[in-house]
Write a protein that binds this DNA or RNA. Structure first.
Lengths: 257, 257
DNA sequence: CCCAATTTGTTCGTATGTATC
DNA sequence: AGATACATACGAACAAATTGG
């Protein structure tokens, strides 16, 4: 179940890594699906002729990648597992931890993905799904009073976008939008954006989202696309302002950005 | 250096996993950068009061995520490592292995990301970079005769897009486009698309790319965007045709799609 | 409720491999 | 070449968790 690892750097692998790769291709070759039980530790020890510790390290490698899960006790063992969205998000997040993205980078992508998502969902949602979206919106019907409320509302608005993505039939689009929303949530928290209430962002966000819901309901794909394009443009502009404000406030005090 | 793991499912972690998480936050807290050496195994054994095997499994977990690398010998040890693009690609690929994407899914994303990339690069590239792009183009100046050549040319055209992405200053855009190109290369191989030469795709691809280079050179951002939008639309259409042909050819023989 | 069987989880001691000086 | 410092691997014993009787 792991895509064949395209090895461009032919560096020697440690034995646990070799075993992990061998198990991977074994699973793929046999077409084993999530839930299938792999041979027991002792069986693998015999199969590969290696010590217990080596085999266990191999299994840990696969577990870290989210490809297997192991349980103790009778009926236990190591089981093929489909990589969860949470795991994939965390693993990919590790990569971008070292790439120090800017707000501009993130919004360049959001600005094209979110409108595409909105357009593709117009006229496709059930009344139940539309109701769920309206439900999230209610959590920021009132302007925030405190910074805590402000932050909570911002996270709720990100949840709105994540929920919207959830409704897409495209797994790739779904993952990317949710991943970016998560990353944005982390950035906002760690950089302490939204420390001061920003009533303009709140008002414009609420307005855009209600207009979006109308377009989604009526099936007006072009309108939905345009509404989200405008929204992203606006949100980007407002976040850049806040980032500037932030740097001016915190940098002199030696705080991390 | 790993983003704080947001744990929504409070399941108990095994000791190696606990240690791995502890080391992660330890690295983040101390702000250790790639290249920094972690304490030796024996030091970690004392530090955590656990057996060697447990510590080693923890390190395997971090290594599988691409966050550390270990070397033997004097001056060796475990070192903080920035997650490589290859590693991130492989790990994310594991996730989508279980999501069975369609050609439509992939092209819905390509159709918005590639034009955005082209637009953002117009007028930004050096003569040297433009020359490198032209260089890749020469590898499919002639129409393919054999299926092998056909496949090689298709992979070269994907490399053209990957190279273009490489030139973007946006790490997120860069990664996404290269990831999708890689995935597309895998899909085309595993599904045996392009088994029969498709001269139309070859001709249109070559035409689009030379027009794109002109737009990039002259700095016409809108033209570059439009050219790639058209190209994606066309490539998508042609790949759907081939996928249909493929299914009709191979499915009766019991081959996997 | 406890006991027994099964399977992973953990420990320790020792030995081997590998790169640096 | 040899000594040193480190990860790597082995093996046997013991512990913990889970399931079923």
């Amino acid at each position: 179940m792991p895509p064949a690892t395209t090895r461009s750097t032919p560096e020697r692998l440690s034995r646990p890594q070799q075993v992990a790769e061998a198990i991977k291709s074994w699973v793929v070759a046999n077409g084993w699906s999530p839930g299938h039980r792999l041979p027991s530790e002792t069986a693998l020890i015999e199969r590969f002729g290696m010590a217990k510790g080596t085999i266990r390290e191999a299994i840990r490698i696969l577990e870290a990648q989210g490809l297997v899960k192991s349980r103790t006790g009778p009926g236990g063992g190591v089981f093929v597992h489909s990589v969860s969205e949470e795991r994939a998000t965390a693993l990919l997040g590790n990569y971008f931890y070292f790439q120090n993205l800017t707000i501009d980078d993130v919004y360049q992508i959001r600005a094209v993905l979110e409108p595409e998502l909105a357009a593709s969902l117009a006229g496709q949602l059930s009344e139940r799904q539309l109701a769920a979206l309206e439900d999230v919106m209610t959590s920021y019907r009132e302007p925030a009073g405190t910074p805590e409320e402000e932050r909570a509302q911002h996270l709720a608005s990100l949840r709105f976008h994540a929920l919207l993505a959830e409704m897409s039939g495209n797994p790739l689009l779904r993952f990317l939008i949710r991943f970016i929303a998560n990353m944005l949530a982390d950035i906002t928290v760690s950089r302490r954006l939204y420390a001061q209430p920003n009533r303009e962002l709140w008002a414009s966000g609420l307005d855009y989202q209600s207009r979006l819901l109308a377009a989604l309901r009526s099936g007006d794909s072009d309108a939905a696309r345009q509404i989200l394009a405008d929204h992203m443009h606006n949100a980007h502009r407002l976040m850049r302002v806040q980032e500037t404000v932030l740097n001016q406030r915190f940098l002199p005090e030696g705080d991390i950005i």
